[in-house]
Amino acid sequence: MSATDKLLDVQHVTVEFHIGGLVGGSLLVAVNDVSFSLDLDRPEIFTLAGESGSGKTTLSRLLLRDLDPTRGKVLFEGRDLATVHNRSEFKEFMKRVQPVFQNPFETFSPLRRVDTYLFDTALNFGMAPDRQTAARVVEEALRNVGLSLEEVSNRYPHELSGGQIQRVSVARALISQPKLILADEPVSMVDASLRMEIVNLFRKLRDEQKVSVIYITHDLATAYYISDHIGIMLRGFIVESGPVEDVLERPLHPYTKLLKESVPAPAPNEKESWAKPISLGTTEVKEYGRVGCKFASRCPHVMEICRKVDPPDVQVERQIVKCYLYTEHAEPAAAGIQP
C-alpha cells in the first residue's frame, strides 16, 4: 500500500454491459470514463446527481466493489480495488466503506429485530469481542445519530418511523468506524417532515466524525443544501463537476441548466421559467447508443461536432464541464477533478 493523500481516487473508470444474446447483442456503456477523487484529511460530502439511468447506481456498485470496472481503476486509500481478493482483505475494505440504502424498510428484514443487525455488525467486524462490549459500541453509534439503544432494542422495523429506521441504518454503517459512507438516495423514501433530520445528520457526521459521504441523489435542492462538491451525471458521463455553489448557481453545461431550471421552486410566484415547454427523450437506450455528446438531441446550442465526437473535459474556473461550448476560451482540464 503506497502513501497517498487521496481517500478515494476514481481514475477513468468505464463499465460496459453486454445486452442481448450470445451472438450479436449490443454494448451499453453505463459508466464512461469517469474520474473524481476525495481528499484523505478533509472529509467532504460529494454528490452524484443525475436522472434515472444516468449510471449513478452502477458507479456506486463500483465503489463498493460489487462490480469490477471494464477499464480504469478505483483506488481506495491508495489501494487498487481490483487487487482486493481474499476474504479478510475484503472485510477490511468493507469496514472502511459502508453503504446506506434508499428504502430502510427493505434494508431490514421485517421478521428480525433491528438491534440484532447492529450487534451482528459489531461482532462480525470484530469491533467487540462479545455481546457485552458490543452493546457499548452499538450505543455509541446510535448516539451519533441521535438515538439510544433503549429506543431500538427489541423493536421490529414496523415499530419505528421512517426517519428513525433510516437513522438506525446510518448507525449500522457507523459501527465499523468507516472513512467513507456511500448513501444511495437515503432520503427519497423518508417523509417530508423527517427528511431534513437525515440530511442534517450527514452534515454532522462529516463535521464531528470526519466521515466522507458520497451522496447519490436526483434531488438537487438537498444536494445544494449539504454537499461540498457535486458531479452531474448524464448517460454514464460526468458532464459537469465542481464546488456545489458554482455548479448549481452558475451552471455551464446546457444539461445542468435544464436540470436546475426543472427543479420546481417551492414558491408559486416563480413559475414562468419552469412552465417553458421542454422536449423529452423518448427512450433511454437510444441516448446511450448515440455517438458524441449524449445531450445533443435535446441541446438548444447543438453544433455539428457535438454529434460526432465525445466532448472533452474543459476547466472553467473551478468547474469542469464536458461541452464544446467552452473549448475555445479554455485549456483542456487535467485528468481527474481537483477539489
Partner: peptide, 20 residues
C-alpha cells in the same frame, strides 16, 4: 413550507420532532 431546501439559499433547515 419552511423546511423546503432551495437552490441558492443555505440557511439551516430542521426536521420536525417526533413522527407521524
Amino acid at each position: 413550507i419552511h423546511s423546503l431546501p432551495m437552490i441558492g439559499e443555505r440557511s439551516n433547515k430542521v426536521g420536525l420532532r417526533g413522527a407521524p
